[in-house]
């Protein structure tokens, strides 16, 4: 039996800077996790993943990551995605200060 689909965002790294990026509802890339489009259906998520994977001039390493709808938009589920969405914990570098 296949596992039930859990909501996901499409994420990747930007080609030039390496920044973590997320696919928005308008098909653009954002640095902010809470501005990502949250896919609640498997078919739509996989179609978006395939399409995003073709954008080789903009992004690298596209994949689907679990997320949950929050008060301000989608929030990451796993701690790895939380770190990707904020930055390292030893310095105030990355998204936690840049966004």
């Amino acid at each position: 039996m296949s596992r039930a689909f859990t909501p996901k965002v499409v994420t990747a790294n930007a080609l030039i800077e390496g920044d973590v990026v997320y696919l928005t509802a308008t098909g653009e890339w954002t640095r902010r996790h809470d501005q990502a489009r949250l896919f609640t259906e498997q078919q739509a998520a996989e179609a978006a993943l395939s399409a995003a994977s073709l954008q080789v001039a903009d992004v690298v390493g596209v994949y689907l990551a679990d997320a949950t709808e929050g008060a301000t938009g989608p929030q990451p589920d796993h701690f790895r995605e939380r770190f990707r969405a904020t930055g390292p914990s030893n310095y105030a570098h990355g998204k936690q200060v840049d966004l």
Binding site: N13, E17, G18, V20, R80, R84, G87, P88, G94, K95
Partner: peptide, 9 residues
């Protein structure tokens, strides 16, 4: 020597 890591190259 160039890797793509979690937040950056």
């Amino acid at each position: 020597g160039l890797y793509l890591q979690l937040h950056a190259y």
